[in-house]
Each structure stands twice: as structure tokens, then as C-alpha cells.
């Protein structure tokens, strides 16, 4: 199964009609599968209509791969059913946890990257891939907290995860920028160390300073255009690893569809050789 995917957009309900009407070549859309895990009705009908015109990516937020327990069997079944229905070109999840002991914490929570955690995440990724019969991409999250007890750097943790499970990776360049600022490391070094051959997808998004703490703490807010520094990191990345399906994520402070499409077109232009001028 091969699809021509260059740059895509996160799909928001406000943009359904425009997304359905859009015929830009290489355009694809990404959704959170949790919003479409319903028995039937208009939501599934919308998604299937979009899917009939464009490739889709399912970007999960709730498998809780880094929880110290197996993925919830019912949730995995719902995901597999949705995947059967819409035949996504990509399925991705996060290197984080959210569901724990029956409660869903609607966020992507951090954990110490220990060897113990690596074994657990690898097992969970393998179970997920077995259930879906599809390779998934695992995304690097944004970091805000200084956690004790890390035994692995994130790039080495992900490299080993790929080696053990055969999974792919989703590199969120904005998360790298935000985390590097918050944790005090070099975003360039992180980008250069990331296992490039495993990258199945790239995310680009906007961020914002924390309302109370200002620029000492950046938040992965998805409510603004992609920042120039993030575009620069993106160009650095694709110069090294080549073109990959790239998504513009925007969840809040939503502009008109055409404004997002223009941002997406910028990424598409950078992906097509010869590499276009810098942003």
C-alpha cells in the first residue's frame, strides 16, 4: 500500500466542507481516532467522505504506551475497527501515558526513561502493531518537567524501541524546540541524533510562552503558526533524512482553512526538490 503523501493538515470539524472540496495534490489529513470511535452517525460519515477524497492518518492520544500495563484491549479493538474502516496511510501514537488504572488523564504524561520502561513500551508497541497488523509511528512528546531517573536519552530510547519492535517514529519538530528550550539542551543536536531512517512522519506546530512564566517555559499549544525557529529545524532535518510526510498541527485559535493550507503549501514546497528558499 503506497500513498503519495507530502504535506498534510490536522482536520478540524470547522473545516470539513473546505477539506472535502480541496483537491490539492499530495494533501492528506490527520485526525485523533478517539473522536471517531462511535457506533455510527454523522461523525463517521464525515470521516469516510474525507477518506474517499484524501489519504488519512490516525494519530492516537490514548493508547498510553508508556503506562506500566498492557494497552486496554477494548480500546485497541476500537482502534483496529476504525483502521479497518478508513484504511489509514499512517497510524501513530505518543511516547507517553494517559490512561492509568481505569482513568483517562487527557494529556501526554512523562515518565523516567529507564530500561524497565523501555521493555514495557516495547511490549506495548508490539501488542499494538500485532492488533493493527500495521507498523505504527511513535512520537516524541513535549517536555516541561525535570524528571529524575532517566537512564536513556530520548533519541537512544527511541532508537532501541525501533530496533526491538520494528516500529517507526513520528518526529515532532515543535516538540523538540519546546523541550530543548524548557530542558536546556540543543534542539539541533537532538534533531541530528534522531534515528532518521525510522521517521515515518514529521509534525510541525506552533507554541506559546506559559501565561504565567513567560519565555522560561514554552507550551506546545498548537494555537499559532509554526515559528521560524521550527521551520529552520525542519529544513535541517529534511536536508539530512530526506522528504517525509509532514503535518501542520493546529488545534486552537483556528484560522480559515486557506490560511492553514498556505502553511501546509510552504512545507510541501520545502519537501520538493530543489529545496525552496528558507522561510
Amino acid at each position: 500500500m503506497t500513498h503519495f503523501l507530502d504535506a498534510g493538515l490536522g482536520l478540524k470539524p470547522q473545516h470539513y466542507d473546505a477539506a472535502l472540496a480541496c483537491s490539492t495534490a499530495g494533501l492528506w489529513f490527520e485526525v485523533h481516532p478517539e473522536n471517531y470511535m462511535v457506533a455510527g452517525g454523522p461523525r463517521l460519515a464525515w470521516l469516510e467522505a474525507i477518506r474517499s477524497k484524501h489519504p488519512l492518518s490516525l494519530h492516537g492520544v490514548a493508547l498510553s504506551l508508556a503506562a506500566d500495563t498492557e494497552p486496554d484491549a477494548a480500546h485497541l479493538k476500537r482502534l483496529a475497527e476504525l483502521a479497518r474502516r478508513v484504511e489509514p496511510a499512517l497510524i501513530s501514537e505518543h511516547l507517553a501515558w494517559s490512561t492509568w488504572r481505569g482513568a483517562y488523564h487527557p494529556d501526554l504524561l512523562p515518565f523516567p526513561r529507564t530500561t524497565e520502561a523501555l521493555a514495557r513500551v516495547a511490549d506495548n508497541v508490539s501488542r499494538t502493531q500485532d492488533a493493527l497488523q500495521q507498523r505504527i509511528a511513535v512520537e516524541n512528546p513535549s517536555h516541561y518537567l525535570k524528571l529524575d531517573g532517566h537512564e536513556w536519552s530520548e533519541t537512544e530510547f527511541l532508537r532501541e524501541l525501533v530496533r526491538r519492535t520494528g516500529c517507526g517514529l513520528l518526529l515532532d519538530v515543535n516538540n523538540v524546540y519546546v523541550s530543548a528550550c524548557n530542558m536546556g539542551y540543543s534542539a539541533e543536536e537532538y534533531i541530528d541524533a534522531f534515528p532518521g531512517e525510522a521517521v515515518m512522519e514529521i509534525h510541525l506546530a506552533g507554541h506559546a510562552p506559559d501565561p504565567r512564566l513567560g519565555n522560561t517555559l514554552l507550551v506546545d499549544s498548537h494555537d499559532a503558526p509554526v515559528a521560524p525557529e521550527v521551520w529552520a529545524l525542519y529544513e535541517r532535518l529534511i536536508r539530512r533524512i530526506g522528504t517525509r510526510p509532514t503535518l501542520i498541527e493546529r488545534d486552537d485559535n483556528l484560522p480559515a482553512f486557506d490560511v492553514l493550507l498556505a502553511e501546509r503549501d510552504h512545507a510541501a514546497a520545502l519537501l520538493r526538490p530543489p529545496v525552496a528558499e528558507a522561510a
Binding site: 508508556a66 501515558w97 488523564h105 515518565f111 514495557r120 529524575d148
Partner: peptide, 30 residues
Amino acid sequence: IAVGALARFQDDFARALLAQDDAASPALAT
């Protein structure tokens, strides 16, 4: 780190997320 450390971390973290008082999660004080 002892076996089960990840589960203990997640129990503490989940409790601290909802706690109104940080003293409720001494293990996560830092």
C-alpha cells in the same frame, strides 16, 4: 530501580495531578 518502579511513579503522578495539596505526594515533591 526496583521492578514496578514505573507503576509506582504513575500512581504517584496520577494522585499528584488531582491533589489540591502537594503534601499528598511526598514521593514527587521535586
